[in-house]
């Protein structure tokens, strides 16, 4: 049976992981390869690396780093952050990334999704959406530019459009839930996941193991992504998978 995926997400700045894991053997400011290997050994199903390097100059270290990650990790990984065109994607995929994720660039140039899908295949194009519900029971809108810019796009419309344009997967982050540790945005995740034919990765709000169970059952997510609960060791992947398995949620053990 197809399993639900657990995906740790790591932010890279200037070639280093921004938040290190608080474990022994691993430095406070983590090495992306070392952390990836650690998570792969723990049973992570996939990894996401987001490059938040501010300057173009320092971004040049990303490709050799992606190559190092690919050389050392035997599970799929996605790379994103600041991708603006074909050339960026070509470089990342040729360095060994399995998928790339685009966010703001997809909103400003939706045809880019189609171009990328046509050239590299839908399976490696993940469209990331940062969404926010501006008032309770109100609409969910898409935000770009790291959550700083509100657009007039409704989450559901953009998700459907991204699929039609050729996205292979949606990474859905609720800004209302991100960082709260109060659980994922279950309703909107369910609505979008059930509406689409492509997988949806839920992100934002993971605080407990039960939150993951909820986003898979009530939220109908295909995968769940989290950062700090894993980085700080608050949730350990083997325990999390045991917890999910006890509730008959299919996970890779």
């Amino acid at each position: 049976m197809l399993s639900k995926r657990i995906i740790p997400c790591m932010d890279i700045r200037d070639g280093k992981i921004v938040k290190g894991i608080n474990f022994e053997q691993i430095r406070e400011v983590g090495d992306p390869v070392e952390m990836g290997q650690y998570y792969a050994a723990q049973g992570a199903d996939e990894l996401v690396y987001l490059d938040i390097t501010a300057t173009h100059e320092k971004r040049k270290i990303l490709l050799p780093l992606v190559k190092e990650i690919a050389r050392n990790i035997n599970i799929p990984f996605t790379v994103g952050g600041g991708i603006s065109g074909m050339e960026d994607v070509n470089g990342l995929l040729h360095s060994g990334a399995d998928k790339i994720t685009i966010n703001s660039a997809a909103v400003s140039k939706p045809q880019m999704i189609t171009e990328l899908a046509r050239n590299f295949g839908s399976q490696c194009i993940v469209v990331a959406m940062d969404i926010k519900q501006t008032d309770k029971n109100g609409c969910w809108f898409v935000y770009t530019n790291g959550g700083r810019t509100k657009t007039e796009l409704k989450a559901q419309e953009w998700a459907r459009q991204a699929e039609e344009l050729g996205a292979g997967e949606i990474l859905l982050t609720s800004m209302n839930h991100d960082g709260t540790k109060n659980g994922f945005a279950l309703e909107i995740t369910r609505e979008i996941s059930n509406m689409l034919n492509i997988p949806v990765i839920a992100s934002g709000g993971a605080g407990t193991m039960q939150h993951f169970a909820e986003v898979f059952t009530q939220g109908c997510a295909d995968a769940a992504l989290a950062a700090s609960v894993f980085h700080y060791g608050e949730i350990k992947i083997p325990e999390l998978k045991n917890h999910l398995q006890k509730q008959h949620i299919p996970v890779r053990m």
Binding site: S3, R5, D45, G168, N194, N197, P199, C220
Partner: peptide, 13 residues
């Protein structure tokens, strides 16, 4: 009641 998703993406047995 919900159709399966295609592509078949992820870990399976």
């Amino acid at each position: 009641s919900i159709p399966y998703k295609v592509p078949h993406t992820g870990w399976n047995t």
